[in-house]
């Protein structure tokens, strides 16, 4: 465990807490893409299959449980909770995210470390995570104005991935056979998707203005 990875995990945890806080405090999920949240549930379930079979550390297991349960809780709130579900922008959140699922799964069948169930699921979860933010970014562009919490949510999601890329660079130079080309490529693609968001986020922060994404 190195500082970059710990910072990345903590930042990732913050994104989940921001969403839970927003939903709990405002009883509203406007501006949040249910599709992105559903993709994240798939990402965590597919990646943490080894939760009970491959113990790595208490920290690792605890964080896996936290990510899986919180992502499911967010989807539950947005789908079932009587107050919250009414505030979901159903007609705005129209990204056909099943194409992302199919594409990631096809890619995982082609490119994986070993052609085993667990490795294909792991690669699937890595590819899917790289594109999971797309429905959310599309929703933000559609709804134009971005409320603070949602803007911070996307910002921290991007920051978590930047920390992970630094972690992979660090591990590449400190560990011999550290070759995670799947994570590298997917992680770079994922971070690139945030690039324009970061740009507009920085501009709005600099001008101290409301975050406006070009439609």
């Amino acid at each position: 465990m190195n500082a970059f990875r710990l910072a990345g995990d903590m930042t990732h945890l913050i994104t989940v807490l921001i969403l839970l806080l927003k939903i709990y405090a405002t009883k509203s999920c406007s501006g949040i893409s249910l599709k992105t949240q559903e993709l994240y549930v798939m990402v965590f379930v597919a990646r943490y299959l080894d939760l009970f079979t491959n113990f790595i550390s208490v920290y690792n297991s605890v964080m896996k449980v936290v990510f899986v349960t919180s992502s499911i809780a967010i989807v539950w709130c947005m789908r079932i909770h009587p107050l919250v579900r009414r505030t979901y922008d159903k007609e705005q959140d129209t990204f056909r995210h099943y194409f992302l699922v199919a594409g990631s799964f096809g890619l995982a069948l082609l490119f994986n470390e070993n052609f085993t169930f667990r490795e294909v699921c792991w690669a699937f979860s890595i590819y899917l995570e790289a594109v999971a933010i797309l429905p959310q970014l599309v929703l933000l562009q559609r709804s134009g104005n971005v409320d603070n919490l949602t803007g911070q949510y996307v910002f921290f999601l991007g920051a978590y991935r930047v920390f992970y890329i630094l972690n992979w660079i660090y591990r590449y130079f400190t560990e011999k056979h550290f070759s995670r080309w799947i994570s590298w490529i997917a992680g770079l693609v994922q971070t690139a998707l945030y690039a324009d968001f970061f740009y507009y986020y920085f501009i709005s922060w600099k001008n101290n203005s409301k975050l406006q994404l070009p439609a």
């Binding site: 990646r47 790595i56 690792n60 490795e119 972690n167």
Partner: peptide, 10 residues
């Protein structure tokens, strides 16, 4: 940590 393809990252 662990064998090569054990994914020790979250």
């Amino acid at each position: 940590v662990g064998e090569k393809n054990s994914h020790d990252e979250l």
